[in-house]
Each structure stands twice: as structure tokens, then as C-alpha cells.
Design a protein around this nucleic acid. Structure first.
Length: 425
RNA sequence: GUGGGCGUAGCUCAGUUGGUUAGAGCGCCAGGUUGUGGUCCUGGAGGCCGCGGGUUCGACCCCCGUCGCUCACCCCA
């Protein structure tokens, strides 16, 4: 638009009411579940030294290579807007040395420069958790369980969980060598793109959805077969733990995630209600090298992140959540005295804990009643010249069919009690 | 980064082979009911037809450009 007005930049969006109610619900639910699992909120800057992300997520990854918002500030510092949540949190851990195991949750925008499409934005929003300072498989289980329980709590049902282990540096390294040899023998069978770039990061080929690559990799060496004893035992403990608490999952030997920092446990939740192009609800895994890569002591960690837009998209696709859109108030105050008696009445009721709305601009009784109806209020309180003269307020039940009978006037001093009695009985 | 579809009222959309005052539904405001919502009736406000240029006697309509939205590829959340 070039008519002198502005609009939100490409790939970004404003969320207004009533849709924002859905966001409130999702975030509040996550905060509640994170609290249950012992996590504390961490708030960290939206931008970091670009090195935090380069060293964290890997310079070869698509996100670091071509999707980051990098800029220089007035002091000549090279900064980047966060493309994901984990690297910043680990940087904060390294900087502040909190006691371990440290359990943090976050909700944050994330920025990636890419062409927007369904379920994909330049600014999207993630919520997630990180645990640093222990490699106990019980923690892997808890992190996965939190994600699963949270998804169910917001109403999702049609999703599945895939888990895998990527091993640690040594056993994954050994696997990558074997994979390279295998891929070298089958180069001409790969998809067009990977025929050229497979050797840069052979693990990426496992992630390729093209039929050609899938055929080759399914028949090739599988990562779980190359795990060292320690990693194998760790993974067995994770799957055993998931079984113990009744969480359904499937082992996906070819599941590797987009960021380089993952080790051992990796997992992804995908929605069956969404198209494959954007069915990833969230995922995560263990990153036992990341703290060290960011200059800290070797510290193992694990976390997961989930996109809020995706969660809402998936829930919508499942036909859930629409009922949450309707916001209502408890009481609507109608005042036609011209003396603003509503101001005190509204304040009294809000202090008592009620959600209260009123009309403004001296509108007619009829117009105010119409607003009262649309507000979804259970009760309307009417103050007009008659009530003012008698020191009363008329209470009307907006939900009852025979409102003529249930309408009653009470003394101004008794209004709060009357409302309490009608709404809390 | 590459390609397809689409830009008309706050929202969802009509708009005939190019023809002069651009429409509907919903929403909003007011009145019918001089103090009473949910139904109904009547009226009203609200549009540089995304923006710029071109063709034409004449453009919402055709052409070019541009910006934006959207979908797909890639990758992800």
C-alpha cells in the first residue's frame, strides 16, 4: 500500500481480540504446566551477539545461513534477532551460573527471514523449556511429557510423537563416516539438490522428504545401530520412561533436527490435522555440547520449543477452541442519569472481583441495553433518574426469559451484596 | 530466492461484451417504543475499486509496472 498509511511488515501480523483470547489461553496454560513441572520463567533479550546463534545452531544450518535478521548497532556490534529460543537461554545460563539442574521456561517471538506461507511467518512465537546441568534420562522424559501434557491441555488430540537418539560426538561421528561412504555409493540416486550438497552435512539427507532420498536412506545405515553403549543405554532409559507414564511414541531412526547442537535424545511432535508442509507442532532434544560451545563449562541440557501459531492452527484444524473466543463480563452497568453514577458502581464491583463493563458517551437506555446484551453479561444494573431519586439500582437478569418478573430494585448500599448473591450462588 | 492465485465498505463478497449516480449480507449508528437487550420494520453513516502509469470518447473491468496478501517449492515452528 502506498497511500500514506503503514501496515505490519511482510510476514508479521497483529493479533487483536477476540482472537488474542486464544493466545492468552495457550500461554496461561503453558505457564501453569511449566510451573507444575518446576520451571521458572526466564526473560532474555530478543537480540544477541550474532555469534550466540552462529555457534549455537550451527553456521551451516539454513536458519543461520540465510534466514537470520543480522544488523549492526551504532556501536558497531554485530547483532541478530533470535531465530529460536534455546541459544539465548543457554547463553544466559553460561553467563549467570544458576544452580543446577536449572529449569527455565520462556515465551518469545522468533525471527526468520523467509517467504511467508501457511503457518509460517517472519515473526512467529514460541514457547518452550530448557533444563541445564543434568543428563539424567528422567529429565528427557519429563520434558517430553510436559510438551505432551500441555498439548492435550489446550485441546489437541490428533498428533504423534517421534523420538530418536543422535548419539554423542564420538558415536555420531562414527555413524556420519559410515553414512558418507554409503551415500557416496548412491549419489546418483539422491534427489537433485542432495546430489550436489550431500557431503556438506550428510545428516540433512536423512531429513529430506523427496522420495528418491527416502528410498536411499531407508535402505542405508541407521543411526541407532551405531550408538555407543552409554548412548544406547540412555536412549533405552528414555523410551522406558515414556512407556512407564503411558506416552505414545514411535522411534524414528532418521529423525534429525535442523540445528547442529543436538545430541542424544531428539523428538518431534507432528499434527495429523495439518498438511505436511507445516505439521511440526514442536520439538526439541538434548544438547550436551551447547553450553561449552558458548564458552561455558561442559553442561548437558535439553529442551523443547513449540510454535504458538502452529498450535492454534492445529487446534483450529481439529475443530477445537472456537468456544474460547467469546469473552463475557459478569455485570454491565447502564447509567442514564448524566451524573456518571456508574463510575462508582463499576469501581465497587471490580474491586469485589467482578468483570464489569459499562457504556460511555451518554447513550440512550435502549442503546446501552443493546451493548449490555452483546457484552454477554449475566446481569445488567440500571441507574436512571428514578433510581437516583430513590437511592436504588435496578438489577435485571439478562439470561432469564421472563425478565419482567426477575427485575428488581435494591438500595444502592445493597447492590454489591445482591450481585454476589445472584452470581455466586 | 523461484513460481501460481488474488487486491472493491470495518468483515465476507457481487459487479454483465469497457458505458457515466459502484451494490448485497453481516457489523455499526439512529428511529419505530419520549426508561429496557436478545425478534421485527424503517432510515443513515461508511468506498481515491491497493498504488502509479498506459490504451480508450469513456476503465472497478483491458495492458504494463509496483506494493501487499495468499498458496506452493526449500526449510522449519
Amino acid at each position: 500500500m502506498s497511500d500514506g498509511t503503514f501496515q505490519s511488515p511482510v510476514g508479521t501480523h497483529d493479533v487483536l481480540g477476540p482472537e488474542s483470547r486464544l493466545w492468552e489461553g495457550v500461554i496461561a496454560t503453558f505457564a501453569q504446566w511449566a510451573y507444575r513441572y518446576g520451571f521458572s520463567l526466564v526473560i532474555s533479550p530478543l537480540f544477541e551477539d550474532v555469534g550466540v546463534f552462529h555457534r549455537g545452531i550451527g553456521e551451516a544450518s539454513d536458519v543461520a545461513k540465510k534466514e537470520m535478521y543480522v544488523f549492526e548497532d551504532r556501536g558497531g556490534r554485530r547483532l541478530a534477532l533470535r531465530p529460536e529460543g534455546t541459544a539465548s537461554v543457554v547463553r544466559a545460563f553460561v553467563q549467570h551460573h544458576p544452580t543446577t539442574p536449572w529449569r527455565a521456561w520462556y515465551v518469545t517471538p522468533a525471527f526468520r527471514y523467509e517467504r511467508p506461507q501457511a503457518g509460517r511467518y517472519r515473526q512467529h512465537h514460541q514457547l518452550g523449556v530448557e533444563v541445564l546441568g543434568s543428563d539424567d534420562p528422567a529429565i528427557d522424559v519429563e520434558v517430553i511429557a510436559l510438551a505432551e501434557r500441555f498439548y492435550r491441555a489446550i485441546g489437541l488430540r490428533r498428533f504423534r510423537l517421534h523420538v530418536n537418539s543422535m548419539g554423542h560426538a564420538a558415536c555420531r561421528g562414527a555413524y556420519v563416516e559410515v553414512l558418507k561412504v554409503y551415500l557416496a555409493q548412491h549419489v546418483d540416486e539422491l534427489c537433485d539438490e542432495h546430489q550436489k550438497v550431500w557431503s556438506v552435512n550428510p545428516l540433512r539427507v536423512l531429513d529430506c522428504k523427496k522420495a528418491a532420498c527416502v528410498v536411499v536412506t531407508v535402505a542405508g545405515p541407521q543411526l541407532p545401530d551405531y550408538l555407543c553403549d552409554a548412548c544406547r543405554e540412555h536412549f533405552a532409559a528414555v523410551t522406558q520412561g515414556l512407556n512407564a507414564i503411558g506416552i505414545d511414541f514411535a522411534v524414528a531412526p532418521r529423525l534429525v533436527r535442523g540445528f547442529d547442537y543436538y545430541t542424544r535424545t531428539t523428538f518431534e511432535f507432528s499434527s495429523d490435522a495439518l498438511d505436511a508442509a507445516q505439521n511440526a507442532l514442536g520439538g526439541g532434544g538434548r544438547y550436551d555440547q551447547l553450553a561449552e560451545q558458548l564458552g561455558g563449562e561442559p553442561t548437558s541440557g535439553i529442551g523443547f520449543g513449540s510454535g504458538i501459531e502452529r498450535l492454534l492452527l492445529a487446534r483450529h484444524a481439529e475443530g477445537e477452541g472456537e468456544a474460547l473466543l467469546k469473552r463475557t463480563v459478569d455485570v454491565f452497568v447502564v447509567d442514564t442519569t448524566g451524573e456518571d453514577l456508574a463510575t462508582k458502581l463499576v469501581d465497587d464491583l471490580r474491586v469485589q472481583g467482578f468483570a464489569v463493563a459499562r457504556a460511555y458517551d451518554q447513550r440512550s437506555m435502549k442503546a446501552q441495553m443493546k451493548l449490555a446484551d452483546r457484552s454477554g453479561a449475566r446481569l445488567a444494573l440500571l441507574v436512571g433518574p428514578q433510581e437516583r431519586a430513590r437511592g436504588e439500582v435496578t438489577i435485571r437478569d439478562l439470561r432469564s426469559a421472563d425478565f419482567e418478573q426477575t427485575q428488581a430494585s435494591v438500595a444502592r448500599d445493597a447492590v454489591v451484596d445482591a450481585v454476589i448473591q445472584r452470581l455466586l450462588k
